[in-house]
């Protein structure tokens, strides 16, 4: 099986947190795929958040930052899955950890499969 013979565009890949895709059967397992990214806050956002910290509530800047980062991690996972020829990633899990002062790692992993 070559990558060229099984082109799957990344956007067409189905992602679920279940052990399969409802209504479809798994025909092939490709194993674990993962994607991660480490992001640091930038100073502008940090200063704004510093003020927001005093009164509390949602820090929109950080929410967006982490959403973008999570999307990036997911994309990397999907890229890996697409390279294997998968058209679905099942049992996906996310995790976040702060690896350094002011930086966070966003990590996504799942099992790449082919479904009918």
């Amino acid at each position: 099986m070559t990558y060229q013979s099984r082109p799957s565009s990344r956007s067409a890949i189905i992602i679920t947190t279940l052990e399969g895709v409802p209504g479809r059967t798994i025909t092939q397992h490709f194993g674990l795929v993962q994607g991660s990214t480490i992001r640091a806050k930038h100073i502008g956002r940090d200063i704004a958040a510093g003020f927001k910290n005093l009164v509390g509530g949602e820090l929109h800047g950080y929410t967006e930052l982490l959403q973008e980062a999570r999307q990036e991690a997911t994309d990397r996972m999907l890229q890996q899955a697409a390279q294997m020829g998968a058209n679905a990633v099942v049992n996906v899990r996310y995790s976040t950890s702060s690896v350094a002062q002011g930086a966070a790692e966003l990590f996504a992993y799942g099992t790449a499969v082919r479904v009918d």
Partner: peptide, 15 residues
């Protein structure tokens, strides 16, 4: 159809 959905929020306590 099945699709992954993610909701996230960063929330801060006050002084």
């Amino acid at each position: 159809g099945a699709k992954l959905f993610v909701g996230s929020v960063v929330i801060s306590s006050d002084y």
